[in-house]
Design a protein around this nucleic acid. Structure first.
Lengths: 343, 343
DNA sequence: CCGATCGCCGAAAACGTTTTCAGAAACGTA
DNA sequence: TACGTTTCTGAAAACGTTTTCGGCGATCGG
């Protein structure tokens, strides 16, 4: 009597309570709930019934203390407000089932010392693994080789080839964009892109030039127009382009922002898109691309998939199957109304 | 000899090791490191020296197991890719020092059952508190009163007044926007806004109308133009507005997207901004506002501050000082070049 | 010089699990 | 019936801390 009374108090229910209710020992209860084979079916049933009757939920601290696994991973991002981290993060969060693994989020804001700080905190919490997502698609410093947990780098690859890095295929994206324009029958294709300090800008340009060369074409305007990742640069470059090369029939923009600037100028000049000039962007940044006039064909980076893959690779590494090197993930074409075949 | 050797193995270093090296018991070592008063200064020094010499870092599971506090909070968002969750999340993440409290991120994608699922997972992990951030600034269903941890709702208030909710001041924002236009000498002010299904749209309109009334002014165009939160609607409404009311000298847009649409049409019609017509947006969504032509004056929601406040309120509640009701946080005016005094 | 007080330290219990190992019970076989 | 095998169960140790409480030596007041 006093026993059941004692257990009925507002305390959180423990395995002891379950065991008592099921009339077994804690050891058996544990084994029953964890699916260990060495317990009779009938006994197991009694235990699980007791467990759900008491709404038992095991204390993860006690579990982690003994198993040495926390069931958590750290997500170290350098640029939360950047649009790139978020989809990756969503993909990762969703690839780990939330019931198996929870993710700690840390934003270092591109600050190395803040990053170190967060790293310490995460290791103190004994995360089972780490995903590091960079702010821009260029190589970043490795966290080092002597970490006690596996790490995967996403979007921004590590500078240490012994690490595993996952990146988007910028060269392939550039190729894909130009390929699409060519299939639309365009022959005089220009490329306006962003900051030449970004490796991604060069990669996208390379993909574009490769595809053009295969077709025996040259870039309209004679060269790649590097500049900045902004609408203003898109506008400025478009004006110069139209002046130097009025018969251009397609523009491949290195980002959706730039594409917006280009569209703006074309509109201003009463040049019809896509019938006279086709425009394709890069990034598929929805708010920009879908709201453009006309809606923008663009290259989607598949970031959510990148995040999912990162989670899978990390899981594998946590299971003892580590990998290394740089893995390049495919991008894809999103066709909207800013491109169309020449009629 | 064998002792020091044993400790030198690759095992993670525990308080025992520290105590041994400092020549005290684990009890004393614990007290020394936790700043308990009942330990001599000289002893404490010896212990901390030993601790840092061994790079000791306490096992948080053992700590949590005994203290019943995890030092973690859950952040339950409904819409990660939405632009509103992110700043809030950043503010919150930063208000909890990462060394004190880490945050678990969960995205429910607006799905109630997924939300329940994540909630279970977070409670299983025994978070010390919960922040719930909604996708849109309207009332949402409470998580209930019987949760074992304190909760604060951010951006989207709970429908239960017993909960604590933190929201942005939409009425104040509407007032602030119109006030700014009036100070710029504008008298014929129109208001184009988004989906009338959003409470925020009505609140902003109310603030605007209040301020106009104080000045004895009426809305140019005769009414609030409700529609959608898109550039396209901004364009369409602007055209109608110009037709019905060609002498308008200012437009208050209910969002930056809408403002972009309005700017677009004004540009098309060769109407000078801001000299002929001033335009003000809402949200301060940087990619849209800063890249606009001209850069957009707008209302900033102070979301990062909202996140910080949420973290503070939650901390207070975790310390046993709960609050309830809805707290409204101020917004602020960001002046750029799309507004200016009439000359 | 003696008893009370005070400051400091350590032994041990506790937190809630998992896992090992030994023993009990049931069963089949000779 | 005796004995080896198989199946199941439970006692106890372990994980790494925090906290209580008793004890010991020193200091102090008388």
């Amino acid at each position: 009597m006093e026993e059941s009374f004692g257990a009925a108090a507002n305390r959180t229910v423990t395995l002891r309570d379950v065991a008592r209710l099921a009339g077994v020992s804690v050891a058996t209860a544990s084994k029953a709930l964890n699916g260990q084979p060495q317990v009779r079916a009938e006994t197991r049933a009694r235990v699980v019934r007791a467990a759900e009757q008491l709404a038992f939920s095991p204390n993860t601290f006690a579990q982690s203390l003994i198993t040495q696994r926390s069931g958590t991973v750290g997500l170290l991002t350098s640029d939360l407000e950047g649009r790139f981290s978020i989809p990756i993060l969503m993909g990762a969060e969703d690839a780990f089932g939330s019931d198996q693994t929870s993710v700690f989020l840390c934003d270092a804001r591109g600050d190395t010392i803040r990053e170190k700080h967060h790293l310490r905190a995460l290791l103190t919490r004994r995360v089972d693994g780490l995903i590091v997502v960079g702010a821009r698609p260029d190589t970043r410093a490795s966290l080092g080789r002597d970490l006690p947990v596996p790490v995967v780098y996403a979007y921004a690859p590590s500078d240490d080839p012994a690490d595993l890095s996952l990146v988007t295929d910028n060269v392939g994206g550039g190729r894909l964009a130009v390929d699409h324009l060519i299939r639309c029958g365009r022959r005089r294709i220009a490329h306006i892109t962003g900051d030449p300090g970004y490796g991604a800008a060069h990669d996208r340009a390379k993909g574009a030039l490769d595809r053009l060369a295969e077709e025996g074409l040259e870039l309209a305007g004679g060269e790649v127009w590097f500049g900045m990742w902004s609408e203003a640069w898109g506008r400025g470059a478009a004006r110069m382009l139209l002046e130097r090369c009025p018969d251009v029939d397609a523009v491949f923009a290195g980002s959706d922002e730039i594409a917006r600037g280009v569209l703006d100028v074309l509109h201003e000049e009463r040049i019809a898109v896509p019938s006279q000039v086709a425009v394709i962007g890069f990034d598929n940044w929805n708010i920009l691309a879908a709201n453009a006039r006309p809606p923008l064909t663009t290259i989607d980076l598949n970031l959510e998939q990148l995040g999912r893959t990162a989670a899978q690779r990390l899981s594998a590494a946590m299971e003892g199957k580590p990998a290394s090197g740089t893995e390049t993930l495919p991008v894809r074409l999103i066709t909207r109304e800013s491109t169309a075949p020449l009629s």
